[in-house]
Design a protein around this nucleic acid. Structure first.
Length: 699
DNA sequence: ATTAGGG
DNA sequence: CCCTAAT
């Protein structure tokens, strides 16, 4: 099922903060320039591959095409070394999480032909390399961006670990189990060790089998990485021959453009990618843990890696993870800020327009004719639309063909045991919910929203004589209920980003509003925002700056619009997010699952032996396969058991626990209260049941 | 990531 | 079961 409220979250106008969905471990993050996992680059590279192919097909043999295709060899080479770091089960999960939505809509075309393309182009001409450094040019072109991208990839590649294997930590916690004395214990350390080894072996096998086809693997990795697996609702109609093809091209392009991560990754490979790697690097144990709670937790999303570049972000993540991520089987993942892929750099929109934070308008002349296409997306809502406008010079009519609106990411998580049919229904629910949540269409022209509905197209500048390349449509959340208090009509959006307004924003309403209604920003405001209020990610990096930073491998010194992880992003995100959590009931309680007597018995037995302070071990010992029982659950259950045992039988509720069990509970509780559980591993003997006819437990 | 304890 | 603080 789909959490109904989720949609509100994404579309009611709430300015989506950066939602953490990343690796749990902060500590693993190493300083920049650290090695980057092979797989981390594949997202870029696959996209580049697709783009390159498209360009190739377009048979326009500009240098940019070469440059784009150039990217690929590294791609494939790397592919050979790629290892999918997860065990097979994890892979399934991940693929399911991120790949099952509709990635094929964006990467359906990769074929043998692609591989040829990839492998044919080998070296980048020196001249082009030189031109990389020539970033003084005001006009940033696609190829330049791509070449820089390429460079970054090289850097990443050289940094990777030599053998390409994955550091895999197997932590079954067996060491801690060494103090179990019960000789009858069937689950001793040794056996656990064996089990773990077996699992490692499985992992290895799974990995190797997936390396057969480097390219394919790359693709797979991409599925993993590129979370742009969005459902696409195509409304496209075009009677023009060949349009289908072009349409498809645009689809792909849209997918690329929409992948903000890529642009981020290009901008800041070191910081952007690392969390990614963390994500993939999760050791067995961690993966296991994730799987353990997979029914109620959403898999971390990679897209937000920039968020995790800041410690603040991690803190935030920790704080929110439990709220959002832990519990839902199926829900939306809020749409993150979106950035443009390198195509956007090609757009010659002026700096003013580029500063406005609401819409990005990557336009690109696709062909030489008088048709033009534009892709836009609305960052807050995550909606994007690809538009094709065709001009008919005769009758002064402008014909628009809105190719598609792209639905923001849907994130659905279902058990492996769910049926395909139920999955379909879930997706359908999600899409329906989105569409039904109230949408309106915005028109954006040259980076500015056209707000006056009464103007004629001509007046608005939408005419055949105007530059329709810069025209875009956007699906926007309908914000009829938006309270205008904090969002005066013409208050630029940026102000909303001011930390001072956060509180109001959190309580008030979907703040989204002003974002929608105010497209253009004044440069001063931009600067203000830039003053590290944390919404930098809203900004479109100035092409020049971006490229500079790319080439230098360093962040631009000062006010650059690079989406640096803001220091106080937490402040930005936490407040609204938390409130949103509550208001939208994003967090749901887990379904109650009362302990059966059998479970209670297992718990009691485990606690008798292990004590009351080692719930993790208890979990592993007695509930290893009960994914829905966390060690916290066990601890809580023990707590209630103790309580239950200490109250009168008449006051007990629920499924009655045998008194004998409760006696054991009390005995164990008393015993372990005496003997500290915490420290000395071998200094405390397991509970010896004194007066029970049962077998003696323990040594 | 675990553990402990309050809600 | 949830949430938080403290490890």
């Amino acid at each position: 099922m789909v959490s109904k409220k989720r949609q509100d979250y994404g579309f009611s106008g709430y300015r989506v903060p950066v939602i953490p969905r990343a690796p749990r471990s902060i500590r693993r993050r190493s300083p920049r320039k650290k090695l980057v996992e092979d797989s981390t680059i594949s997202a870029f590279e696959l996209l580049a591959a697709v783009a390159g192919k498209l360009l190739q097909e377009s048979e326009s043999s500009t240098s940019s095409n070469v440059a784009e295709v150039k990217v690929h060899p590294g791609f494939c080479r790397d592919g050979k070394k790629m290892r999918l770091p997860e065990n097979d089960k994890a892979l399934k999960l991940k693929y399911f999480d991120q790949g099952s939505c509709a990635e094929s809509a964006f990467f359906p075309e990769i074929s043998v032909q692609d591989r040829n393309i990839l492998s044919n182009v080998k070296e980048l001409p020196q001249a082009e390399n030189d031109s990389i450094l020539d970033h003084t040019s005001a006009l940033v072109s696609c190829d330049l961006a791509t070449r820089v991208d390429y460079d970054m990839k090289l850097e990443m590649c050289t940094d990777k670990s030599p053998n390409g294997t994955f550091p895999r930590k197997v932590d079954g916690g067996s060491n801690d189990v060494g103090d179990i004395y019960d000789p009858k214990m069937d689950n001793g350390p040794e056996k656990q060790l064996v089990n773990e080894q077996e699992q490692v072996g499985d992992l290895t096998m799974a990995n190797e089998s997936s390396v057969k086809d480097p390219f394919e693997e790359c693709v797979n990795n991409n599925v993993l990485i590129n979370s742009e697996s969005s459902v696409q609702l195509s409304l496209y109609r075009d009677s023009i021959p060949g349009a289908l093809f072009q349409n498809h091209r645009n689809d792909v392009k849209l997918g690329i453009i929409d992948d903000d991560e890529n642009s981020f990754g290009c901008n800041k490979p070191c910081t952007k990618i690392r969390p990614f790697r963390l994500q993939l690097c999760n050791g067995y144990h961690r993966t296991r843990k994730m799987l353990t709670s997979k029914y109620r937790k959403v898999a971390p999303k990679i897209k937000d890696r920039e968020f995790y570049n800041s410690n603040e972000g991690m803190k935030f993540f920790y704080r929110c993870r439990k709220n959002i991520c832990k519990r839902e089987r199926c829900h939306w993942v809020p749409i993150k800020k979106r950035k443009l892929f390198d195509h956007s750099f090609e757009v010659a929109y002026d700096q003013e327009a580029s500063s406005e934070s609401v819409y990005n308008l990557p336009e690109k002349k696709m062909r030489g004719d008088n048709s033009s296409s534009a892709s836009i997306f609305h960052k807050e809502s995550g909606f994007s639309a690809s538009v094709k406008a065709r001009q008919k010079s005769k009758d002064s009519k402008v014909k628009f063909s809105i190719k598609s609106f792209r639905v923001p990411e849907l994130y659905i998580e279902v058990p492996e045991t769910a049926t395909v049919g139920s999955l379909k229904r879930m997706v359908m629910e999600a899409v329906t919910a989105i569409l039904g949540s109230g949408l309106q269409v915005g028109v954006v022209l040259q980076g500015k929203k056209v707000r006056d509905d009464n103007r004629t197209l001509q007046q608005a500048g939408i005419s055949q004589s105007s530059n329709l390349d810069s025209l875009g449509f956007a699906l926007e959340p309908s914000f009829a209920h938006v309270s205008g208090q904090r969002a005066p009509k013409d208050l630029p959006l940026v102000l909303q980003c001011d930390a001072a307004l956060l509180s109001s924003r959190s309580t008030a309403s979907p703040i989204f509003d002003s974002g929608i209604s105010n497209a253009a920003l004044d440069p001063p405001l931009v600067m203000k925002l830039d003053n590290d209020i944390g919404n930098n990610q809203e900004l479109i990096p100035s092409p020049k700056t971006t490229i500079d930073s790319l080439i230098d491998g360093v962040l631009p010194d000062s006010k650059a619009l690079i989406p640096v992880p803001p220091t106080n992003i937490e402040a930005l995100a936490v407040v609204p997010f938390n409130s949103k959590c509550k208001h939208t009931e994003i967090s749901q309680r887990r379904t109650r699952r009362p302990f059966s007597v059998t479970e209670v018995e297992a718990l009691v037995e485990a606690v008798e032996k292990l004590g009351t302070g080692r719930w993790r071990n208890v979990k592993m010992r007695a509930f290893e396969d009960a994914d829905h029982r966390t060690y916290v659950d066990l601890k809580d259950k023990w707590k209630t058991l103790v309580h239950t045992a200490s109250i009168a039988p008449q006051q007990r509720r629920g499924e009655p626990v045998p008194q004998e069990m409760l006696d054991r509970v009390l005995a164990a509780h008393a015993y372990w209260s005496q003997h500290q559980t915490k420290h000395g591993k071998h200094q405390v003997e397991p509970l010896q049941i004194i007066d029970s006819p049962r077998e003696i437990v323990g040594a």
